[in-house]
Write a protein that binds this DNA or RNA. Structure first.
Length: 918
RNA sequence: GCCGCAGUGGUGGAAUGGUAGACACGAAGGACUUAAAAUCCUUUGAACAGAAAUGUUCGUGCGGGUUCAAGUCCCGCCUGCGGUACCA
């Protein structure tokens, strides 16, 4: 019987399903291992061949760990709330609930064909009320918490209220939007509304007027990580700045912990670096500048306190509150005009057009160190959201200040010895200070430290750490998301109590977003509490549901808690997390924040959610082209195309095989090509190719179902791994798949003859044992280090060796089955079963290799002369270094090659090389 | 600009400082076959020499260096990819 992968795969997939083979429960007798894939958005396009890459890798690891005796949690679910799902629904004119269910079913169907070992009984969907109850619950916890900077953790807001009542704000060091100062008496005097608005300043989930990125086309605000270069990542629509009353999460309170936590994680350096950049810690000095003749001082932030003697002007961000305070009557008109012009510009225009603009405020500030008067300008190159929204400008040593100074003809004073600032600024942080009073002669580093001390001693400011990381804007003016468990009473937001959760998303007819930003939930009927208090109309963003799903998998059906203490104590956190790099600054920041918050509340036992993280590469498309001769319906093969004037046309890669076009299929592909004619080479039409993004419009989408149908899931799995290193991006190229398929056919044919297994009970010979143990060693090491491509190659080598030895022995097959099971579970399961086992291969044990079989009796030395290898020689393995040297040097070949030349040195590396230097 | 990663045959890609190109694809030749498919075998980095076995030289983006020995380590470039950016 030939290798009938269709029947084998169908058989085992239904067996695993019927017997719940991969269902896991807490089992304290075994060590746990939690292997997780980033769960997918069920998009309308279904899975293409790139999606399963990471899933296959994690599946291999899960199966391997299971065979090693671990109790492996390997779940899967769907991130089904949020923009992508809703956009798809809008585009197809259907209700998102309908399309989401449909898409999920399609995903599941495709996933099932690949033979994953997911425990589907633990599936979660973020749009399911039993799931989002816990998303809402977490929000309530955040609303009821504040961040205490003294203990560096989140605490109940009730403790803060008690402190306010006792001693006012004096002893409170909490993360907040704005520093407030009030006494216990003042607190007591505040009415309910005032107190609530003060508390809002401290809550971890808070409501505030915030400058947001609003995308009119999506009808919705977006978080910073959802935007790139002024355009929305989803859809690529323009984004503008607006001030809106929005819910936010105080992620910034966790900036330092998010940064510190990275050191303890087994993630790639590049990903950690991306997060470090995103968090953007910068240590500097906050300094107070007085305005001349006015009782105003304002603070600036700088990392280059050393350059204070080079300050020649100040710049305020246009949105800064100081603008209004410092502007002189004479300059009022000019300033107003400038502010209006800035406001008109969209974020995108501002980014695209970086011309220097600005206006003089009329005011002068006093340099606190030199006492000199310096003009105060207003310009949009200073950002209101970073630092204090005001800077001291040192044109000699900052390229932006330099451009501004040149444009407006402001003085430039260099303060570092020997630098030339006639053409450009000198930004480097090294050199010796000059023109700088008491700093003269110091290095930049010393000067920064000295200035900090000076500023502190003279009470001119303080040392300050700034972070680029902003609070996460948490409201979306969209329908398809978690409703906030919030109602308004006299305009004051209140959260629902736990018993009333979940607050279910109401059915509405018109769920379309609006360009003005009115939330669609405004259309919902009776969207209020029993008492008639209106509910919040915004919904939560996409990352809400994905921020704690890894915890829910531990205990997915628990009605009383997000995760029980018992389940969390056992499963702890994710041992291996697999997904794309695109989540580096979004999901992977938010979920770490969310997890740390729950940890602070003592609800979970680990403060980092993902111990090890691997980013699988993207699979790009490999497009094929045909070449149409201009103004004809004739197509010319690739290598002849230069003789004609041709237009390349994308052709569906599914009708091309090894770059050879299926001409009949092409004629039937589109009506236009029905009567196409061809100029062939060697009787074939060869197509051109290029690597592009995998997309429908390039006709280069390859669907995993098609591969499974043609070659089987085992071949697909092996091939995706064989394609190259897991972390590398690579084009999908079907050209090599035959080789992997051939391997499985050979494997089958070697042990299966006619209608039955043809294996002997004979023990393995030394050579066979060596081959098998070499494989065990290699595959074990490779799987541990995620080098799946080289382990596939190792299987092929071993099979070739055994085949050359005509080894169709039971002992060899059994070991091969177990080793191959993680990679190609169906064929392994079938052959394992045929060997007489009546349990699944999951009950087998990963084999251990034995060094004694790998030992060689002889050892091959490479003999090199001056580093160049000229010969090899086999010598007994137990020979001493000295004896090897003697034997080699006295050997005939060496004597011949040396021909009497004197030997300077002989280097012997045991088992490897003998180098003779002459 | 800054940060990170990479550059090896016709192709995808292997190589704890120790015989570069494993394994696979493709290609060429051969076997089986009426033929094709499938399968199997041989060759396959380049150049030169040789009837042949084989030998010689050159070869991991470029230029230097360390070393008996460098794809691998160090310094200086070039190119490509990814991230990020008026962040003071």
């Amino acid at each position: 019987m030939d290798y009938n992968f269709r029947e084998i795969e169908r058989k085992w997939q239904s067996y695993w399903k019927d017997n719940s083979t991969y269902k896991v429960d807490i089992d304290k007798s075994k060590p746990k291992c939690y292997v997780l894939d980033m769960f997918p958005y069920p998009s309308g396009a279904g899975l293409h061949v790139g999606h399963p890459l990471g899933y296959i890798a994690s599946d291999i690891y899960s199966r391997y760990k299971r065979l090693c005796g671990f109790n492996v949690l390997h779940p899967m679910g769907y991130d089904s709330y949020g923009l992508p799902a809703e956009q798809y629904a809008i585009q197809t004119g259907q209700h998102p609930a309908v399309t989401t269910t449909k898409n999920i079913n399609r995903y599941r169907e495709q996933l099932d064909k690949i033979g994953f070992c997911y425990d589907w009984s633990r599936e979660v969907r973020t749009c399911d009320p039993t799931y989002y109850k816990w998303t809402q619950w977490a929000f309530v916890q955040m609303f009821n918490s504040y961040y205490d900077n003294d203990c560096d953790k989140a605490k109940p807001i009730s403790e803060l209220i008690a402190k306010f009542a006792k001693e006012g704000s004096a002893s409170v060091h909490a993360a907040c939007s704005e520093e407030l100062n009030f006494s216990a008496a003042e607190w007591a005097a505040m009415d309910e509304k005032k107190q609530q608005s003060v508390l809002m300043n401290y809550r971890i989930a808070y409501l505030a007027d915030t400058k947001v990125n609003f995308c009119p086309k999506l009808g919705c605000v977006l978080a910073n990580d959802e935007i790139s270069e002024g355009l929305s990542i989803r859809g690529g629509y323009p984004v503008e700045q607006r001030v809106m009353r929005q819910w936010s999460l105080r992620v910034s309170a966790y900036a330092q912990r998010l940064l510190d936590g990275l050191d303890r994680l087994d993630w790639t350096d590049s990903l950690k670096e991306t997060q470090r950049n995103w968090i953007g810690r910068s240590e500097g000095t906050e300094m107070r500048f007085k305005i001349k003749d006015k009782d105003i001082d304002f603070e600036i932030f700088t990392t280059r306190a050393d350059t204070i003697f080079g300050v020649t002007f100040m710049v305020l961000a246009p949105e800064s509150a100081y603008v209004d305070m410092v502007t002189t009557p004479e300059q009022r008109a000019a300033v107003d005009e400038y502010l209006a012009a800035v406001k008109r510009r969209t974020e995108r225009e501002r980014l695209a057009d970086r011309r220097v603009t600005g206006v003089f405020s009329g005011a002068y500030a006093i340099n606190p160190l030199t006492g000199k008067e310096i003009p105060v300008w207003i310009s949009d190159y200073v950002l209101s959201g970073y630092g204090t929204g005001a800077i001291m400008a040192v044109p000699a040593h900052d390229s932006r200040d330099y451009a501004f100074a040149k444009h407006f003809n402001l003085p430039i004073i260099p303060v570092i010895e020997g630098c030339d600032v006639s053409e450009q600024s000198f930004d480097a942080k090294d050199g010796i200070m000059t023109n700088s009073g008491f700093l003269n002669g110091m290095t930049v580093k010393e000067a920064i430290a000295a200035t900090k001390v000076y500023v502190k001693e003279h009470n001119l400011g303080r040392v300050k750490v700034n972070y680029r990381l902003r609070d996460a804007i948490f409201s979306r003016q969209r329908y398809w998301g978690e409703p906030f468990p919030v109602y308004y009473k006299d305009g004051i937001p209140h959260v629902l109590d736990e018993k009333s959760l979940p607050l279910e998303l109401p059915e509405i007819e018109n769920f379309l977003p609006t360009a003005s930003g009115e939330p669609p939930l405004g259309h919902a009927k009776n969207w209020c509490t029993k008492e008639g208090y209106p509910f919040e109309l915004n919904t939560m963003p996409g990352f809400a549901g994905s921020s704690a799903y890894f915890l829910r998998y531990m205990d997915p059906h628990n009605d009383n808690a997000l995760v029980s203490r018992e389940a969390n104590d056992y499963w702890q956190n994710v041992d291996l997390y697999l997904g794309g790099t695109e989540h580096a600054t979004g999901h992977l920041i938010y979920s770490r924040f969310w997890n740390k918050f729950l940890y602070d509340l003592g609800l979970i036992c680990q403060d980092e959610p993902f111990k090890k993280l691997i980013n699988q590469g993207m699979i790009q498309g490999r497009s094929n082209f045909v070449y149409r001769i201009k103004d004809t319906n004739t197509f010319v093969s690739l290598n002849l195309k230069d003789q004609y004037e041709v237009t390349p046309i994308h052709v569906d890669v599914n009708i091309v095989s090894n770059d050879v076009l299926d001409i009949e299929a092409f004629k039937n592909w589109m009506p236009d090509f029905k009567n196409a004619e061809f100029i062939l080479e060697d009787g074939k039409y060869i197509c051109g190719w290029a690597v592009e993004k995998m997309s429908k419009s390039m006709f280069n989408v390859v669907n995993p179902d098609v591969i499974v149908e043609k070659y089987g899931a085992d071949t697909l799995r092996l091939y995706e791994m064989f394609l190259g290193p897991l972390e590398a991006s690579k084009p999908w190229d079907t050209n090599g798949i035959d080789g992997v398929h051939r391997f499985l056919k050979k494997f089958w044919a070697m042990f299966y003859d006619k209608d039955q297994l043809n294996v002997s009970d004979a023990p393995l010979t030394a050579e066979e044992l060596k081959s098998v143990h070499k494989l065990i060693k290699k595959v074990t090491a490779d799987v541990e280090s995620f080098s799946f491509n080289t382990s596939v190659a190792a299987f092929m080598i071993c099979l070739n060796e055994l085949s050359a030895l005509k080894c169709n022995k039971k002992a060899a097959l059994e070991t091969l089955c177990i080793l191959l099971a993680p990679f190609a579970p169906h064929i392994s399961e079938e052959l394992y079963h045929e060997l007489g086992h009546n349990t699944t291969i999951c009950d087998a044990q990963w084999p251990k290799y034995d060094e004694q079989y790998l030992k060689e009796s002889n050892c091959k030395y490479a003999i090199s002369f001056n580093g160049k290898v000229k010969n090899t020689m086999e010598l007994p393995i137990d020979m001493s270094k000295e004896d090897v040297e003697k034997t080699v040097v006295s050997s005939e070949t060496v004597t011949k090659i040396l021909a009497g030349k004197p030997i300077k040195k002989v280097i012997v590396v045991p088992g490897k090389i003998v180098n003779i230097v002459f």
